[in-house]
């Protein structure tokens, strides 16, 4: 039976292949951008009154910092305790247009040895984990020029 694909969090990202994007919201009045998305009120205290509409974040940014997880994180992170723990990479990425830093896991195979602060990376679709019925999708950061 084929698993259905579902995002780990609804409406945080969308699109396939090169069109994959993180989704935030932007205030119609002050232009503030929010990720994770704010859908009720603008959080800029000098504004607070605009309409929030969905906006795709820049697909590329530069590494602000990075690390990895050498030990299995606790729940609600999902991992199979029967399998040996395989460290994953976490990358904090600075988006120039939005002037913000967004965390994400590195694409599979990307290790801390592959990364430097300031390096250009792009957002790509990825798989967080799979269970019997569902492939849970997420976003990954991947250095430019690397193909999965």
């Amino acid at each position: 039976m084929a698993r259905r694909k579902a995002p780990v969090v609804a409406r945080w990202f969308a699109g396939e292949g090169d069109a994959f994007r993180l989704l935030g919201t932007r205030c119609s009045r002050c232009g503030a951008v929010f990720f994770p998305r704010e859908d009720d009120f603008c959080r800029n205290p000098q504004c607070g009154d605009g309409e929030l509409s969905e906006v795709a974040l820049s697909p590329r940014g530069r590494v602000w910092s990075f690390t990895d997880g050498r030990y299995r994180p606790p729940a609600p992170y999902v991992s199979d305790p029967e399998l040996p723990w395989r460290p994953y990479t976490l990358i904090a990425v600075e988006l120039e247009a939005e002037r913000m830093v967004v965390l994400g896991q590195g694409a599979p195979g990307v290790t801390v040895a592959d990364l430097e602060v300031g390096m250009e990376v792009e957002v790509v679709s990825g798989v967080l984990h799979e269970d019997a019925e569902t492939t849970w999708t997420t976003w990954h950061w991947r250095p430019l020029g690397v193909r999965a």
Binding site: S65, F66, T67, G69, P73, V78, Y88, E116
Partner: peptide, 29 residues
């Protein structure tokens, strides 16, 4: 899913030491 503390573990597995490490690497760079 409305709790940022729950989300960072669910989506990223980002433990407290992961954040400490991001700051440390940033300082080094």
């Amino acid at each position: 899913p409305d709790d940022p503390d729950w989300l960072r573990f669910r989506v990223l597995g980002a433990t407290n030491p992961a954040y400490f490490a991001l700051y440390a690497r940033r300082r080094m760079a």
